[in-house]
């Protein structure tokens, strides 16, 4: 009884042999079974009306679903996709060029590496041997760095001047953009 509830399509011993698993019928419709199994089930379906009816109903449900009709793609769809794709391709190319630039930089620095290593080695040797010239150069460099860090120019006059210049430029840009048409108009009106 329990088995009957679980698999409603199993109604006699032969059905149980071939269709013990109810999924088999759907797989049979979708032609997803191996050939030997298809033949066996086909043979059983010819002899068993109940199973054949059950299969027919599933088949009709499937046919009904297939008859639903499709939506149509709008005309600009392909163009839209290709526009986005070409944008992406361009972006990828740019990224690629940035990557190649980095790669070139690394290559150059690798090229410089032996000479830099030699220089570092020399510097280390001279420091170790306390060569007065190198010591004085290093002291000067350290003092300059400390000085620049501690005594920054307070007024930042140069920066302020630059900003002023920028503002002037902006103003003059605005004037150039907006004024000439007005002037032209007034001259035109005055001329009239």
């Amino acid at each position: 009884m329990n088995r009957q509830n679980e698999f409603p399509n199993v109604h006699n011993s032969e059905c149980e042999t071939y269709l013990a698993n109810p999924d088999v019928l759907s797989a049979y419709i979708d032609k997803e079974l191996p050939t030997w199994k298809r033949h066996l089930i086909g043979w059983h379906l010819k002899r068993c009306g109940t199973c054949a009816h059950h299969l027919q109903r599933l088949q009709h449900t499937d046919n009904f679903l297939r008859g639903a009709g499709d939506v149509e793609v709008s005309d600009g769809f392909l163009d839209g996709v290709m526009a986005r794709v070409s944008e992406a391709a361009q972006h990828q190319r740019q990224q690629g060029s940035f990557g190649s630039r980095i790669h070139g930089l690394i290559k150059v620095s690798i090229g410089w590496m032996p000479s830099l290593t030699t220089l570092a080695g020399k510097l280390r040797y001279n420091i170790r041997t306390r060569s007065p010239v190198y010591i004085s150069i290093l002291t000067f460099a350290v003092f300059t760095m400390v000085g620049v860090t501690l005594y920054q120019p307070s007024g930042d006059k140069f920066g302020a001047e630059l900003r002023e210049l920028d503002n002037e430029k902006l103003i003059s840009f605005e004037v150039i953009q907006h004024e000439p048409p007005k002037r032209l108009l007034t001259t035109y009106l005055q001329g009239k």
């Binding site: 109810p22 999924d23 019928l25 759907s26 797989a27 979708d30 997803e32 109903r57 599933l58 449900t61 499937d62 009904f64 679903l65």
Partner: peptide, 16 residues
């Protein structure tokens, strides 16, 4: 997948 399809078809049949 086989089980999913079968269950879906059975349910669709009932719903329709």
């Amino acid at each position: 997948v086989k089980a999913l399809i079968h269950r879906a078809r059975q349910k669709m049949k009932k719903l329709l």
